[in-house]
Measured scan of single mutants.
Amino acid sequence: AQASVVANQLIPINTYLTLVMMRSEVVTPVGIPAEDIPRLVSMQVNRAVPLGTTLMPDMVKGYA
């Protein structure tokens, strides 16, 4: 199964992502692939992302 990117903490709206904020986990539904974690660093979330939430492409500015 493919691992997705999951929030490792509460990520406030407009926060620039860093490695410590994200982890990879096999979840349903599938979100942003874990292999894209390096690409996500320094990208901004466009909403608050609670701890344990799967990151979806529409949550990250400029990802989709």
Rank of each mutant, 00 (worst) to 15 (best):
T28S: 10
V6S: 03
D58N: 13
Y63L: 04
E25I: 04
L55R: 00
S24W: 11
A1E: 15
M22A: 00
L51H: 10
R47A: 09
T15I: 05
N8F: 07
V6N: 02
M21W: 03
P38I: 05
V60I: 13
R23N: 04
L51W: 14
D58F: 12
M56Y: 07
V26S: 09
G31P: 01
P50R: 09
Q9F: 12
V20F: 15
V20R: 08
R23P: 00
Y63S: 04
R23F: 04
G52H: 07
V45A: 07
E35Q: 09
V27T: 13
A64T: 10
P12W: 11
S4W: 02
K61N: 12
A48D: 13
V49D: 01
L40D: 00
V5M: 02
R23L: 08
A64C: 09
L17P: 02
R39C: 10
V6C: 03
I32S: 01
R39W: 06
G62H: 11
G31S: 03
M56N: 07
S24K: 06
I32L: 08
V45G: 01
T28H: 07
T15G: 09
I37L: 15
P38M: 07
T18P: 00
V60M: 06
A64P: 09
V60Q: 00
A3M: 14
P12R: 07
P29I: 12
V27S: 05
P38A: 07
D58V: 13
V20Q: 12
G52P: 00
V20M: 12
M43R: 05
V41L: 15
Q44N: 07
M59I: 07
Y16R: 09
T18L: 11
L51M: 13
I32M: 04
I13R: 10
M21N: 05
T28N: 09
L19H: 12
P12A: 13
A7V: 07
E25M: 07
V27D: 02
Q44Y: 11
Q44K: 07
M59P: 01
P12C: 04
A1N: 08
T18C: 04
I37C: 03
V20C: 10
D58P: 09
S4A: 03
I11R: 00
G31R: 03
R47C: 04
G62Y: 07
K61T: 14
T54G: 03
D36Y: 08
S24R: 07
I11T: 01
S42F: 10
A1T: 15
V30N: 09
R47D: 11
I13N: 07
I13M: 12
V45N: 05
N14A: 09
N8G: 09
G31A: 05
Q44P: 05
L51N: 09
S42R: 07
V30W: 08
